[in-house]
């Protein structure tokens, strides 16, 4: 689904990636760990086409993507959860915010409403439709942000620190939602416990490249290829 080849990227003339290769195949559940500033968020933004690398090739869903419109075409298929929910939620009510993605994808109003209630229900957020987004608590904001991403029924998720700063029960809800689903995802996190429980393979970025940290090789598990 996602394939990065020989990516080079500099930030303020400091090299972040030098010949980075990365691949996500259907069924992969990848944990991305590493120290602050090692380029985890940058990698996610390059995949989404929000940052353009200096060199290398990005292939998404079988096609090399170069221009903004190339990326716009597939953004609905990759769900990106931002680190700060305040950036993700911008509509006044939860209903409008969760419906924003589906409406952009061309769903009718009725379909969008149905998607919103189903998505909210899957996160135990029933009845949140008319709540005001900026009045939600930090945990609720994160859950609603996740709902806005899931509402677009993406094929793969990129989650940037989905559980940072959350209490145990909210963290638990997010972990549950991820492990219950059959979605492929890349989870960026500092929380060892969360990474341990939700992913099959753990990678990090060292010297501008992807390095394998740990691989769970349970029987019947899909073997991700890097």
């Amino acid at each position: 689904m996602i394939r990065l080849k020989d990516i080079g990227f500099r930030y303020n003339s400091r090299p972040i990636f030098t010949g980075l290769n990365f691949r996500v195949s259907p069924g992969d559940r990848i944990g991305l760990v590493g120290p602050n500033g090692s380029g985890k968020t940058t990698l996610a933004q390059i995949i989404m086409g929000l940052l353009i690398p200096d060199s290398g090739e990005i292939e998404l869903f079988g096609k090399v993507r170069k221009t903004e419109s190339d990326f716009a075409e597939v953004r609905g298929r990759i769900g990106f959860l931002f680190q700060d929910s305040e950036d993700q939620l911008f509509c006044p009510t939860v209903l409008e915010d969760v419906a924003f993605g589906p409406l952009n994808l061309g769903k009718s109003k009725e379909e969008a409403r149905a998607i919103v209630s189903a998505t909210l229900a899957s996160l135990n957020l029933e009845g949140f439709e008319e709540r005001i987004t900026y009045q939600l608590s930090g945990g609720e904001k994160r859950l609603v942000s996740l709902a806005t991403v899931l509402a677009m029924s993406p094929e793969v998720l990129i989650l940037d620190e989905p559980t940072s700063g959350l209490d145990e029960s909210t963290t638990e809800r997010i972990v549950q939602r991820l492990t219950d689903s059959s979605l492929s995802y890349v989870l960026i996190s500092h929380d060892r416990d969360v990474v341990e429980r939700t992913t099959d393979i753990v990678i990090t970025i060292r010297d501008g490249r992807i390095v394998l940290v740990k691989e769970k090789s349970e029987q019947g598990r899909h073997q991700p290829s890097l």
Binding site: Q45, M48, L50, A72, R75, G76, I78, G79, F80, F82, D84, E86, D87, Q88, F90, L95, E96, A99, F100, G101, L103, N104, L105, K109, A112, R113, T148, V149, M152
Partner: peptide, 22 residues
């Protein structure tokens, strides 16, 4: 900075310059 991140988040959700109204 925040405005840049909001635009990025909106683009990720398929925003192409048009708001649909419920």
């Amino acid at each position: 900075d925040r405005s840049e991140r909001i635009v990025a988040a909106m683009k990720c959700r398929g925003f192409r310059g048009r708001f649909y109204i419920l």
